[in-house]
Design a binder for these strands. Structure first.
Lengths: 137, 137
DNA sequence: CACAAACTTTACCTTTACGTAAACTTCATA
DNA sequence: TATGAAGTTTACGTAAAGGTAAAGTTTGTG
C-alpha cells in the first residue's frame, strides 16, 4: 500500500498521509467520520485524492489556529455549496467576516504576547549574566 | 459582595471578575483548582487582588491563542521562580523560545488564512452580483 | 428576624478529539 | 502456504475545560 514516488502524486494511502502530516491513521479516519474528508474506496481500502490531501492540510492549519473540527467542516460545506443560492452566499459572507474578525484579534494577541516573550527573554538573559558575575566575586 | 467602584480597585469579588471578563464563577474557581490563581480568603469567601485579575486576563488571552491551562500555569510558575537558579532561568528561556516559534508559525498561518478569506469574500460578492444580474435578465 | 442575594463545596455530567485494544480481511512475498 | 504488514470496523477509554445540580453558609437590609 505504501507508495514510493514523491513528486506529483494523485492518490495516497492512509499511511502515506499519516506519515506526511505526522498524524495517526486514527485521526484521519476520525476526520472522515466527522464528515471532513470523503476518500474513495477500492474494496474497503481508502484511496485519498489530491483534494483530500489539501483538506487535511487545511484541517491541520485550522487546528493550529484553534478552529474546531465542526467549524472547519462548516467552512468546507459552505465552500462547496450551491453558488446560485444568494442566501447561502450571504451566510458564507457572514461566516467569513466572523472568522476574519476573530483572526485579526488573534493577530493582535500574538503581537502582544510576542513582545512580552521578548521582554521575558531579555530579563532572563540579564539575570543569567548577573548570576555569573556574582559567582565570580 | 458586589463592588460598585470601577476605577483603580485593588480587590475584587468573584462575581466582579466573572462579569468583567464574561466568564462563569465556575471557570474562575476551576482555574484556582488548577493552580493558576491563588486568591486570599476572608472567611471562606475569595478575595481577588490586582495580580489575580492580571492573571485572569493572561489566562484568557492564552486560551484565545490555544494555550492549555497547564501551559499557562507552567509559564506563571517559571515567571515566579527563583531568579538565582540558572537552570530555572535556562528552562524558562527554552520555553519562551518554544512559544515564540509556535506563535510565529501561528502568525504565518493567520496571514495565509486571512488572505484566503479575503479571496473567498471577493468571490462571494462577485457571485452575488452575478446572481442579481441573472435575475434581472 | 427573616429572607434573598451572593458565596461556598462536592460531585457527577458533557463535549471534543482522539488513544487503544480486539478481532478480522487483504495482499505481497519468502 | 503461511506469515507479516497494512488495512478495516467496532467499541470502550481518556484528558481538558468546564456545565449543572444539590445542599449548605454568610451577609446585609427591610
Amino acid at each position: 500500500m505504501m507508495s514510493t514516488i514523491h513528486s506529483p502524486q494523485s492518490t495516497y494511502s492512509i499511511s502515506d498521509l499519516s506519515k506526511e502530516f505526522d498524524i495517526t491513521t486514527r485521526s484521519i479516519r476520525f476526520y472522515e467520520d466527522q464528515g471532513l474528508i470523503k476518500p474513495k474506496r477500492r474494496g474497503q481500502t481508502r484511496i485519498y485524492s489530491l483534494k483530500d490531501r489539501v483538506r487535511l492540510k487545511l484541517i491541520l492549519r485550522g487546528k493550529r489556529l484553534g478552529f474546531s473540527l465542526a467549524e472547519t467542516r462548516r467552512l468546507f460545506e459552505l465552500y462547496d455549496a450551491d453558488k446560485s443560492s444568494s442566501t447561502q452566499l450571504q451566510t458564507m459572507l457572514d461566516l467569513v467576516n466572523e472568522k476574519k474578525t476573530a483572526l485579526q484579534q488573534q493577530m493582535d494577541d500574538i503581537k502582544v504576547v510576542l513582545m512580552e516573550l521578548n521582554s521575558a527573554e531579555q530579563q532572563c538573559k540579564a539575570a543569567l549574566a548577573d548570576n555569573l558575575l556574582k559567582k565570580k566575586s
